[in-house]
Amino acid sequence: TLFEALYDYEARTEDDLSFHKGEKFQILNSSEGDWWEVRSLTTGETGYIPSPYLAPV
Score class of each variant (00 low, 15 high):
9 Y>H: 07
54 L>P: 02
55 A>H: 10
48 Y>I: 10
13 T>P: 05
51 S>D: 02
57 V>D: 06
24 K>S: 05
9 Y>N: 03
23 E>V: 02
20 H>K: 15
38 V>C: 08
20 H>N: 10
40 S>I: 06
32 E>K: 14
48 Y>P: 01
36 W>F: 05
34 D>H: 10
11 A>H: 06
42 T>N: 09
24 K>G: 02
2 L>A: 05
57 V>M: 09
28 L>M: 08
21 K>V: 09
29 N>C: 07
39 R>V: 13
51 S>R: 12
11 A>R: 08
2 L>V: 13
32 E>D: 14
10 E>F: 10
20 H>A: 12
25 F>N: 01
42 T>G: 07
21 K>A: 11
39 R>M: 14
28 L>N: 01
17 L>R: 03
52 P>F: 15
30 S>W: 13
52 P>R: 15
51 S>C: 07
41 L>N: 04
39 R>W: 07
43 T>Y: 01
48 Y>W: 15
34 D>C: 14
15 D>I: 11
25 F>G: 00
3 F>E: 01
3 F>L: 06
7 Y>R: 10
50 P>K: 12
51 S>K: 11
54 L>D: 01
24 K>R: 14
26 Q>F: 13
25 F>L: 04
50 P>Q: 12
30 S>T: 12
40 S>N: 13
40 S>Y: 04
20 H>I: 12
26 Q>E: 14
35 W>P: 13
18 S>Y: 04
47 G>H: 06
5 A>I: 02
19 F>T: 05
33 G>V: 11
35 W>V: 11
28 L>I: 12
31 S>C: 12
52 P>Y: 15
40 S>K: 14
30 S>G: 10
16 D>Y: 12
16 D>W: 09
39 R>A: 06
16 D>H: 15
49 I>D: 00
32 E>T: 13
27 I>L: 13
28 L>P: 00
49 I>E: 00
29 N>E: 07
17 L>T: 04
44 G>T: 02
30 S>Q: 12
39 R>G: 02
38 V>S: 01
3 F>P: 00
38 V>G: 07
18 S>M: 04
23 E>C: 05
57 V>C: 05
39 R>S: 06
13 T>H: 14
26 Q>G: 02
14 E>I: 08
25 F>V: 02
43 T>N: 07
17 L>W: 07
14 E>D: 13
38 V>I: 02
11 A>I: 02
13 T>L: 11
1 T>Y: 11
8 D>R: 04
24 K>A: 05
48 Y>D: 01
1 T>F: 12
42 T>Q: 11
17 L>Y: 06
52 P>E: 15
57 V>F: 08
22 G>E: 01
36 W>H: 01
54 L>F: 06
23 E>S: 03
9 Y>D: 01
47 G>E: 00
33 G>T: 12
25 F>E: 00
27 I>Q: 03
42 T>S: 13
44 G>A: 05
15 D>G: 15
16 D>L: 11
4 E>R: 05
44 G>H: 06
34 D>Y: 15
18 S>H: 05
4 E>I: 15
43 T>R: 03
12 R>V: 14
16 D>K: 14
50 P>L: 13
56 P>G: 06
6 L>Y: 03
10 E>R: 09
15 D>V: 13
44 G>D: 05
44 G>P: 01
31 S>F: 09
2 L>C: 07
35 W>L: 10
37 E>W: 15
1 T>P: 13
17 L>M: 14
16 D>E: 15
38 V>F: 01
26 Q>M: 14
